[in-house]
Design a protein around this nucleic acid. Structure first.
Length: 689
DNA sequence: GCAAGGTC
């Protein structure tokens, strides 16, 4: 009998073949894809193939491809076709499926995994209707789990696959129709289109909202009173117990009253032990957050993690798990105890004989284990960035197994002529896990030895004026975290969604700032199509998907309900079509004004020629011919910052390969370029001489 | 040239 096993990715195909064959398998290539082949104990021939995630994608029929000749709302009621993403996987599945008596779907144990399995199954049923179908569900790729799942095979959960299918159709219809409507209204076609989506738009709205808060923030002054104290030659700082004074007079009055006082009395000392439990193991979100805080962009961090995974150095980087499930702690520790960098720490942990049952913390999910090291490579053999990521993951793993960190906090109350001041100190009692995971460094504040009724010398009383600060923008890491909290995107897509916002010219910088275009898009959508700007759309979809899975409703019903809602939105959009178009077009046109013409005082605008070239020109052309060159390639992003010398908005250029060039002021850039050219000419001339 | 979801 021929048995075919289909997994979601190559790495699990290989691992499953290893486990089920006892490492006795051969690799054959079909359509240049690895297939792991072996004989089972019963003498059955088994082939294991790993796919590359989804093998099919959704598409509108060709006649709907012309944006200018299709009403965006026509997409709501259009057919949707399923098209292969890569032909070779389809061909390979057909070849293997034709000769198989039984197929076991062994894709990941989640919604999308079930759909990927059904996609593969549909391809196979086309060529072999008689085939027997089974499903293997495993919650970790450990020997025990895999063996158990293959000896206890289940059936395909078609409802679960259906729920994922509904999601994909709804995403395409909403995304494509609204993207086209906005792009057409704003006359932004070609690669300048204005994208809209269930996940990207609410994410962008978060960033824009933060920008609004900062824009509207009015700083309020407040005052703080500090006392510079000393005891036994040791200086320390105490702060008035009221902390912030909103009233300057009140603060001044206190300062004046105690300014000449030379001594204070310690009236109270409070000591508290603060125990901080070790951090949980990394899942994708917490990993990206940590990588972001040490200076990586989330895309870069994810790329490196993928590459470390492919080299066998870390476990699968896309997971929601933060528990120890599916992980062999001692094996990892033994491996690390042989490493140059971590041997002493790992050895100590091994000696401690950690009780795994006491480590049952974190969220246990049915997907891959938490991100942890599975191999080791010396620092020299990895490049700097790869090492930093590997080190971060390894230190986190070690930290999670370590003791809590204990800090002693001391609060000293000092009476200065009736005014109460507080001095705060902190020192490590036991660094615990912080000695190996030292990324969030905590500084000790040491106070002199004090007891109640001690007299301390007051060297100086200071009144400091401060201002309340606006909220902080989202860093990439914080945004990933926020997206997870709101249920936006998945562990695998969140970083891609953020990159997408950059390449669309919707955001720039890190922490993220929204561009004018983004602000206009969000304002328009919030006015006329609020559902798509709201994270609730995702929560609602999640509920609907759950109902489909439970059999309480159908894929068709959910899609129709969603289409009806979108159809109502389109009615509103059409009613306000002219206004929307004018608003989008005008505000984005304003975006093109980047400064004032030094020759005539007109507006400097980014002008695009029909040939696709562009330059900075004066709005009073042909009366004024002032112009500045711009690079031919890449997407221009206009920032809010102005050139200090020319008052022109600074520009950035985004390239397809995701590289960014901070062009800055186009005038400065032009001058620099001219100077360089002059230098080159000079050297050319001198060479000739 | 649209989305989001997989995976590399």
């Amino acid at each position: 009998m021929n048995r075919l096993i289909i997994t979601e990715k190559n790495s699990t195909a290989k691992r499953i073949a290893e486990i089920l064959s006892g490492k006795d398998y051969k690799i054959k290539k079909i359509e240049n894809i690895n297939v792991y082949s072996f004989y089972s104990k019963d003498g059955d021939n088994v082939d294991v193939i790993g796919l590359k995630g989804h093998i099919l994608t959704l598409e509108f029929p060709k006649d709907k491809n012309d944006w200018l000749n299709t009403m965006p709302e026509e997409l709501l009621w259009s057919d949707i076709e399923k098209k292969p993403i890569s032909e070779k996987y389809i061909k390979a599945l057909q070849k293997l499926g034709k000769n198989a008596d039984e197929v076991i779907i062994a894709t990941d144990y989640d919604r999308e995994g079930e759909l990927i399995g059904v996609e593969a199954l549909d391809v196979i049923l086309d060529v072999n209707k008689e085939i027997k179908i089974k499903r293997a569900k495993y919650s970790a790729i450990t020997e025990e789990e895999i063996k158990k799942s293959f000896s206890d095979l289940l059936d395909i959960d078609y409802n679960l696959a259906s729920s994922a299918n509904a999601r994909s159709i709804i995403d395409l219809i909403w995304g494509a129709s609204l993207t086209r409507f906005l792009s057409l209204s704003a006359k932004r076609l070609g690669n300048n289109y204005l994208s809209v989506g269930r996940v990207q738009t609410p994410t962008l709205a978060l960033i824009k909202k933060k920008d609004d808060e900062i824009e509207n923030f009015v700083p309020e002054p407040y005052w703080e009173i500090y006392a510079e104290c000393s005891k036994g030659g040791r200086n320390f700082l105490a702060k008035h117990k009221k902390n912030r004074f909103k009233n300057e007079k009140e603060a001044k009055k206190i300062k004046n009253a105690i300014e000449k006082v030379k001594e204070g009395i310690v009236t109270k000392i409070e000591r508290r032990m603060i125990k901080t439990e070790p951090p949980l193991l990394f899942n994708t979100t917490s990993f990206l957050k940590a990588a972001s805080s040490i200076g990586f962009t989330v895309s870069r961090a994810m790329n490196i993690a993928e590459s470390l995974y492919n080299r066998g150095l870390i476990s699968y980087p896309r997971t929601d798990n933060t528990s120890y499930a599916g992980m062999e702690i001692n094996k990892v520790l033994v491996m690390l105890s042989k490493s140059d960098e971590f041997f002493s720490y790992a050895t100590d942990l091994l000696d401690k004989k950690i009780d795994i049952n006491k480590l049952k913390r974190g969220k246990e999910t049915k997907d891959h284990p938490s991100i942890h090291p599975v191999g080791y490579e010396t620092r020299e053999k990895l490049n700097d960035q790869d090492w930093k990521i590997y080190e971060l993951i390894t230190r986190r793993f070690l930290a999670s197994l370590s003791d809590p960190s204990i800090i002693e906090n001391t609060k000293v109350e000092i009476d200065i002529n009736g005014e109460i001041f507080h001095a705060k100190g902190s020192r490590f009692v036991d660094k615990g896990w912080r000695s190996v995971y030292y990324y969030k460094n905590i500084e000790e504040v040491l106070l002199p030895v004090l007891v109640e009724k001690d007299r301390v010398i007051i060297d100086n009383i200071m009144l400091e004026k401060k201002k309340t600060t606006p909220p902080r923008r989202y860093s990439q890491g914080k945004l990933i975290d926020k997206m997870e909290t709101l249920g936006l995107g998945t562990k695998s897509t969140r970083h891609e969604i953020i990159s997408k916002l950059y390449t669309r010219g919707y955001v720039h910088d890190n922490p993220l700032k929204s561009t004018k275009i983004a602000q206009t898009v969000i304002d328009t959508l919030e006015k006329y199509a609020q559902d798509i700007t709201n994270p609730d759309m995702t929560s609602k979809l999640e509920e609907d998907m759950y109902s489909i899975t439970e059999g309480k409703t159908t894929e068709e019903d959910v899609i129709n309900e969603s289409k009806n809602l979108l159809s109502e939105i389109f009615e509103t959009l059409r009613e306000n079509e002219n206004e929307i178009s004018k608003e989008l077009y005008d505000r984005i046109k304003d975006e093109k004004i980047i400064g004032r013409c030094e020759k005539c005082g007109g507006d400097l605008i980014i002008i695009r020629s029909r040939k696709g070239t562009r330059f900075v020109g004066c709005s009073r052309y042909p009366d004024c011919d002032f112009s500045l060159p711009l690079p031919k390639k890449g997407r221009l992003v206009v920032t809010d910052e102005l050139c200090k010398e020319h008052g022109i908005k600074l520009l950035k250029v985004l390239y397809d390969n995701k590289k960014t060039w901070n062009l800055g002021c186009p005038y400065c850039n032009y001058i620099e370029w001219m100077n360089k050219r002059r230098e080159n000419n000079k050297s050319e001339i001198s060479k000739k001489e």
